[in-house]
């Protein structure tokens, strides 16, 4: 009996141990699942913030893009407007030049232009082209200065449509030197544009 009861006791002991173990296991499992839930909750949380973050990032990007583009567009519109104004100013200046043709200063300018142009072409025989109004003036200037130059000159009978100045060609027509006011203005255009733009924008005055 005693052995029996001893056996029983042991069984009981084992059983109870199992029981507590079981209970503790269940408890552990419960705790763990709780923790898992906790974990997945925080994971979910993290996932959510990640999604929100990335959405925010996208929104941020979009904002940057929109702000950037609209600023750029505004700037570009301004550039176009400015260009209109510059062109207008330019045309006015040209028109004024056209009408101021008969001043005395024009003659000395024309003289200089011709004197510069003749040797530049580097040919012994040249043809000079100018507009209808200037051909008399050119003739006069040439008559006054031919002694100084060995270059043979001829004035073209075909007038060209320019504001002023001359175009010099070698007699064989292989070289041309364009020294008309039009081409001079064209070359100065960038500089003039810069100055006109400055004035239009109201930024302080001329540069040296």
């Amino acid at each position: 009996m005693s052995s029996n009861s001893a056996l029983e006791r042991t069984i009981n002991k084992v059983l109870s141990k199992k029981e507590t173990e079981l209970i503790s296991q269940i408890d552990a499992a419960y705790q763990e699942s709780l923790k898992n839930i906790e974990d997945s909750k925080s994971k979910l949380e993290a996932e959510r913030t990640k999604i929100i973050e990335s959405a925010k990032k996208q929104a941020e990007n979009l904002k940057r893009q929109i702000v950037g583009s609209s600023r750029l567009n505004a700037r570009n519109k301004e550039l176009l407007m400015l260009e209109n104004d510059v062109n207008e100013a330019f045309e006015k200046a040209k028109a004024r030049l056209m009408s101021s043709g008969k001043e005395e200063s024009y003659k000395s300018l024309m003289t200089r232009i011709i004197e510069d142009s003749l040797p530049t072409v580097g040919s012994d025989e040249v043809v000079i082209e100018c507009n209808k109004n200037d051909s008399e003036l050119v003739k006069k200037i040439l008559a006054e200065s031919t002694k100084k130059s060995r270059i043979k000159t001829k004035i073209s009978d075909q007038p060209i449509n320019v504001i002023g100045g001359v175009r010099v060609k070698s007699a064989d027509n292989t070289m041309t030197f364009d020294n008309t006011l039009d081409s001079r203005i064209e070359r100065l255009k960038p500089l003039i544009r810069k100055n006109v733009a400055r004035m239009l924008r109201g930024t302080a005055g001329e540069e040296e």
Binding site: T120, V121, N173, T174, M175, T176, D178, R184, R187, L188
Partner: peptide, 13 residues
């Protein structure tokens, strides 16, 4: 400042 003298144009290629 940009050049004020013009370049020469050649046609003998």
């Amino acid at each position: 400042m940009p050049e004020t003298t013009a370049g020469i144009e050649y046609t003998k290629v």
